[in-house]
Design a protein around this nucleic acid. Structure first.
Lengths: 165, 165
DNA sequence: TATTGTTATACTCTATAACTATA
DNA sequence: TATAGTTATAGAGTATAACAATA
């Protein structure tokens, strides 16, 4: 005999996220960021890349060759962490540490031909993952989410830059 | 001589976040979640708590004594990770592992009087941190952000629950 | 003296595998 | 046989301290 009152589709009873938790911004942001990373990494894994790697390459494509710390300051990545990221990309043959023309301490990180070649494909995979991640939202909400988060992140970035002087 | 054209306030030249980066949802979500955690942890540090600890306590207050895995499923925390969280809170004297009435394998995690006492204060600190974090946004946007993220997180939670059968 | 890149190191967050005591 | 809790362990992600080369 099938029960007349159905359980909410696909939800094991008792494991719903309670509202006290769903109303906490920290929980929402953490879960969202975590899930997004999962989806993106799954999409980029065949190329041995993460979203951060792709972001780094996009930045270089837009700005031209940059020293590691310059990249780190734009992407909010520590200089010691930058070493590993650039190591990864260099090992994959996607970027190269060239000599910096004005400062012999610094490197100029450049995209290799292979990097320039792969980047559009990687970006495409990343954007497909993003669409998949946002698929539950109506298009207007996707745009709104981006707008609000952008404002929030810019605010805190600016604030930290002011404190750093 | 003061320059007539002022730099954008507080922004060291060249370290703006480029638009190619600001348009990536992964970057926005990661930075937001990371910054939120910073602000929250700063507020709760005097009590030796993180946002997750407070979330755990709130859940118990709402639902009553629960086994660790039950809590973990609501908060999306692995059972091995739950051990450490409950250890932390027990060490602080805020929760207690009681015997579960129906299952001698399981614990019933309860708030101690000290936990019940501290929780409102901890929640208050957490919410103040949240307000500080969101202060750059107009009130309507704060509400909208919560609504959109809630929908997103619920969608993925539901989807994972369906796949887990 | 300060800065770029580097290494070694450590800390947080999280998950996997294997164990124990129950069910 | 499966499950609740535990332990040991390992992997990401990130940061601090100290160092060499250079500014």
């Amino acid at each position: 005999m099938t029960p007349i009152i159905k359980l909410k589709q696909g939800m094991p009873p008792g494991h719903e996220i309670p509202n006290v938790v769903l109303d906490r911004m920290g929980f929402l942001l953490n879960r969202s960021a975590q899930k997004f990373r999962e989806v993106t990494e799954e999409a980029l894994r065949p190329h041995g890349l993460t979203g951060k790697h792709v972001g780094l390459m996009v930045l270089i494509r837009e700005r031209g060759a940059l020293p590691q710390q310059e990249i780190g300051k734009c992407l909010h990545v520590d200089r010691t962490t930058m070493v590993a990221f650039v190591d990864d990309l260099e090992r994959l043959g996607l970027v190269e540490r060239k000599a910096h023309p004005d400062d012999r301490r610094a490197h100029a990180i450049e995209l290799t031909p292979k990097g320039k070649d792969l980047l559009p494909k990687a970006l495409q995979l990343g954007m497909a993952a993003e669409r998949k991640f946002l698929s539950a939202l109506p298009p207007a909400d996707r745009k709104t989410l981006g707008r609000i988060l952008k404002r929030l992140v810019l605010h805190h970035h600016l604030q930290e830059a002011q404190q750093a002087r």
